[in-house]
Write a protein that binds this DNA or RNA. Structure first.
Length: 271
DNA sequence: AGAGGTACCTGGCAGC
DNA sequence: TGCTGCCAGGTACCTC
């Protein structure tokens, strides 16, 4: 269930266990993920030391001297560090065995996740090169949103979920940020004033930041073989709460499909 | 160029 | 209990 906070939580969870380790072996049990896993991964990654564990949008980047593994968790992917002796379970599609006997194991029931290998700077990879700014980075703010909304008649919720506008805002946090900002999710993006875009950008940063902090607090030991990876339990104010009273005004929250995705909002507070 | 729909795949759950 | 239909956190790609 990875949105950006979970991907970041995963990154923080696995990094201490894999950074600096050398890759002994790559085992691909299911090559058909969102895209077929390139044979280059099997051939190039073994023998390399993992120097960096970074994140760009919802992509995890395992950097080595020879190239970078680009990993996406899709809708249902998880990455965990386990003892090599741990037997593979259903949907354990890919293992990266390390030189200390641990294994970085990728599990993904729905197979919407992906593994790429690139020998070039990862930022130039087709999947990454056109991404918008990081929502928690310095070059994302209300002015950026306002600029990108000029001439756009699409719903604001669709705009902030467009990874080319801002990277990594998923369906849950789009609803949450719009609720906090008091902006109706279906409002045409081009008809929102700069000041409200500033409020929205701040809300996006706040909700993602808080979720990451919560993810950190509930993060379990990623080396625990039988523990579920610790997904954060966030106090969501809008998402999934159709019919429940708005925390601000008491009006029952509504559910509506916008951009083919479930959307939750308050008709009184959000305009 | 922008907007909208489709596709990928499996598991869980409500309803019958 | 078992079947069917629907829904789910993502996002590239296609068409209009």
């Amino acid at each position: 269930m990875p949105e950006l906070p979970e991907v970041e939580t995963t990154r923080r969870g696995i990094a201490p266990h894999i950074a600096g380790r050398r890759v002994r072996e790559v085992t691909v049990r299911q090559r058909q993920l969102r895209w077929p896993v390139s044979r280059r991964l099997d051939s190039d990654l073994p023998g390399q030391r993992i120097d960096t564990v970074d994140r760009r949008a919802k992509y995890l980047l395992l950097g080595t001297q020879a190239g970078t593994a680009i990993v996406h968790l899709g809708m249902s992917g998880t990455l965990r560090v386990l003892p090599r002796s741990a037997p593979p379970a259903a949907h354990d599609h890919l293992d990266v065995t390390l030189d200390d006997g641990a294994v970085l194991r990728f599990n993904d029931p729905r197979r919407f996740g992906s593994w790429h290998w690139t020998r070039r700077p990862p930022a130039t990879h087709p999947l990454l090169k056109d991404l918008g700014p990081e929502p928690l980075g310095d070059d994302f703010d209300g002015a950026h949103l306002y600029r990108r909304a000029r001439g756009r008649r699409a719903a604001i919720k669709n705009l902030i979920m467009d990874s080319h506008v801002v990277a990594g805002v998923g369906n849950i946090y789009a609803s949450e940020a719009l609720f906090r900002a008091g902006i109706h999710p279906a409002r045409p993006a081009g008809r929102i004033a700069l000041a409200r875009m500033v409020t929205l950008a701040d809300a996006i940063r706040a909700v993602l930041g808080e979720a990451i902090r919560q993810g950190g607090t509930t993060l379990r030991d990623f080396t625990d073989s039988d523990g579920q990876p610790g997904y954060f339990q966030q106090e969501l104010l809008a998402y999934g709460r159709a019919g429940e009273p708005c925390t601000r005004c008491g009006e029952p929250l509504r559910h509506r499909v916008i951009g083919q995705r479930a959307t939750y909002f308050c008709v009184r507070c959000q305009r």
